[in-house]
Write a protein that binds this DNA or RNA. Structure first.
Lengths: 198, 198
DNA sequence: GAAAAAAATGAACGACGTTCAAAAATAATT
DNA sequence: AATTATTTTTGAACGTCGTTCATTTTTTTC
């Protein structure tokens, strides 16, 4: 019988993801060590490699959680009514707020890179696509003329534009907007894009 | 006499930056090893730490070269005439083209992070600011009403927006635009922003 | 309850960035 | 020019990292 075994393995994996999530939130991706994770999770060093493929996959699992939280937050906090443009502005605000509140975890989602050959698993890429769909919906209100593929492509671009502003601000680059004006700049950008996109 | 000594040290530093630049261009920042750099530069491992503070500072020196090349390319290839909007579109094209042609070096500029406490030297941050000035100039044509500080802030935001689209595309994220449509998407974004910004 | 199978452990491994005592090269002094 | 003093270069050694694997411990099976 492997039902109980499978359950224990899943429990261990969860506590490892918990530990990694907490450590990333505290110190960022750069300071993440396998030994710290297993110590926090209360298991042996080698156990990490029984539960998951390695540190990279564990980070992907943390990033998946972060994306899910972002999706649920964006979904929950953005009012369903309002015109397409208003909804888009609200999405931008929520996105910026999430990044400010979860700087290290949010940063990990977009800065972690797998070794040379490998690419993210399909289910993780699908999670990214879920974000894009949330942008595509209000965009469809504004541009009912666009077909599905073009709509999604344009939604990706709008997302990436806002993402760039938030990233350079959070990340502390001098090119980025100072953090206290991040919200107004994101709002100005989304506003300008919505006005110009028609 | 330390003139000749200083010259030799500078020559060594240059060849180390050469080696690191070549290796980053080939394999990216993740695969960069101190031993590979010194082997390529033809010096001992320890020599790296005589010439520069460490691997991090060496990467900053490479990034500085990349920023300079980007600035010179953007300056040289963008025609001086044309309206503000046209110039901005040209800047976007040149920026995207540079990133596509130098994916690893360009990526290193924006993904390399110093250890927890440290921040980039002032002269390096000034190089970033030089990029922003190139965006601020055509923006001033379109928005002569903005004062210097607001103009620069808005220029940062426009830069970051384009940067985000290019980064998510180059970086291979599924959220980014497929690379073959990167140029048209950047152009559409800049166009929409220029139309909406007035 | 003993034998077989599975899972957890942490010492050991190779590779990494960095350091530092020793060696080589250069400068200063007689 | 020979010798000493100083500086520069060297690469072996150090501590730490992610990862592996022989061993131990636990669980399952008969």
């Amino acid at each position: 019988m492997s039902a109980k075994t499978e359950a224990k393995r899943a429990a261990l994996r969860d506590s490892l993801v918990d530990a990694a999530e907490g450590l990333i939130a505290q110190n960022g991706l750069r300071g993440l060590k396998a030994r710290d994770i297993t110590a926090r999770a209360g298991c042996a060093l080698g156990a990490l490699y029984n539960a998951v493929d390695g540190l990279d996959q564990l980070i992907v699992l943390v990033n998946s959680r972060t994306l899910t939280r972002l999706g649920e937050k964006a979904l929950a906090e953005v009012p369903a009514d309002g015109t397409g443009a208003d909804k888009m502005r609200a999405l931008g605000r929520v996105y910026a707020a999430f990044a400010v509140e979860n700087p290290y975890l949010w940063s990990a989602v977009f800065t972690h890179r797998l070794p040379e050959g490998q690419s993210s698993p399909d289910w993780h890429r699908a999670e990214f696509m879920g974000l894009i769909e949330q942008v595509a919906a209000p965009l469809a209100d504004l541009r009912p003329d666009l077909d599905g593929a073009t709509l999604r492509l344009r939604a990706q671009t709008l997302f990436a534009a806002v993402h760039g502003v938030v990233q350079l601000s959070i990340h502390g680059f001098e090119v980025g907007a100072p953090r206290d004006v991040l919200f107004s700049e994101v709002d100005a950008l989304v506003g300008a894009m919505m006005r110009g996109i028609r």
